[in-house]
Nucleic acid binder design. Structure first.
Lengths: 210, 210
DNA sequence: GTCTATAGGGCGATAGAC
DNA sequence: GTCTATCGCCCTATAGAC
């Protein structure tokens, strides 16, 4: 019986520290951008010595890539609610609801993604060309079927998707601006409810789904 | 008669070089973010020695602030078209048209603004609290009057403004993503026309203005 | 697996000749 | 007003003791 950690224990430590570092990194990358973020600050937020970060993630870019992938995965699965819906009112309504909730719960991830795309997607370009393109084609097809079935007005499915992304992510990416215009205070539960209702009302009405 | 430049000539040189530097800076800040941008790269893009930048703009932050102010001014004036309109169909339609055109013509400025706000507006917070807040209150009031006059559906004016900003600026800030989904090619004239039409159709219908 | 110390490189900013 | 050379700082990344 060795006193050294068995592999499973070692893996637990690794998983725990990785999660801790990833959470700190998401926050720091969101607040300072890739170039403005420093490994020292991420280490401080995570409560670890800087050298430990390089033990778990070889380079700053590796760490950054993992943060970007995380939010991407979350968004991809948010669209599952559309697939089983009987029509656009339920499907797109639920998708808006899900995306708004993610903007509320993961604003930092959304900001890191926005920053990455704005700078030309130097790190996740391959995801845009494969996973995101397939995802978009599939969901545009679903919307087109709803149009063909007369369940909503004739709109361009891709531009509708852009509008859904833009409007929902705005509450995360421009959350600071919204907070400032709200008297410097974050939106309350009631205000978030009103925001979701406004977005759903205008878009669902705009596409003739209600 | 001195051979040295007279004050007016000197001012011309200053104005020319400032414009040259500001254009280069907008491009570099948009592509790399504030932290990722370097004075050396901005100088290279402008075709000037790095030291000259510091002659015209004392610090990197001074230069950055001017770039952010530029796009802000452009956006503020884009809303003039709303004020003289007889109703929401014309007013908000024209505002969407103007904002979409700015996204097309000044995508870099839009990205720099987005980045600044995402990082908590460290440099232009005072503008958000004064100029933007007043602007927003005024336009929300105009929209509320249209609602009271029965010219459009009852929607929350502020959330409508957020949707207008989000949707139009998305075509600049996420232009790279849109281009990738468009087969790696920028939107053509025809595609931009379709984008504008889609946005106007869904929003104007969504607020009951058409 | 953890941490201190430091190497090595690039940055913003400036001095000073022209 | 322009430009070269350089200073001083802070960054990422790593070596090596524990």
């Amino acid at each position: 019986m060795s006193t050294a950690p068995r592999p499973s224990r070692r893996n637990e430590i690794r998983a725990q520290n990785e999660t801790l570092i990833l959470q700190a990194a998401e926050k720091v990358f969101a607040e300072a951008g890739f170039g403005g973020a420093t490994m020292q600050l991420i280490a401080d937020v995570a409560g670890l010595p800087k050298a430990n970060l390089h033990y778990y993630f070889a380079t700053k870019e590796d760490l950054y890539r993992r943060v970007v992938q995380n939010i991407f995965e979350i968004w991809l699965h948010a669209a599952d609610v559309m697939d089983d819906a009987p029509g656009p009112a339920e499907g797109i309504g639920a998708y808006i609801e899900a995306k708004m909730e993610i903007s509320r719960r993961h604003p930092d991830g959304s900001k890191v993604w926005a920053s990455e795309v704005m700078h030309g997607a130097p790190v996740i370009q391959d995801y845009l060309e494969t996973t995101l393109r397939d995802w978009t084609t599939g969901r545009a097809g679903l919307i087109q079927r709803w149009i063909d079935e007369g369940k909503m007005a004739q709109v361009d499915p891709e531009h509708l998707l852009y509008m859904l992304w833009a409007t929902t992510q705005h509450y995360a990416d421009f959350g600071h601006q919204i907070e400032t215009l709200n008297g410097g205070k974050p939106l309350t539960d009631t205000q978030w409810k009103a925001a979701k209702a406004s977005v759903k009302q205008i878009i669902l009405r705009g596409i003739g789904a209600i």
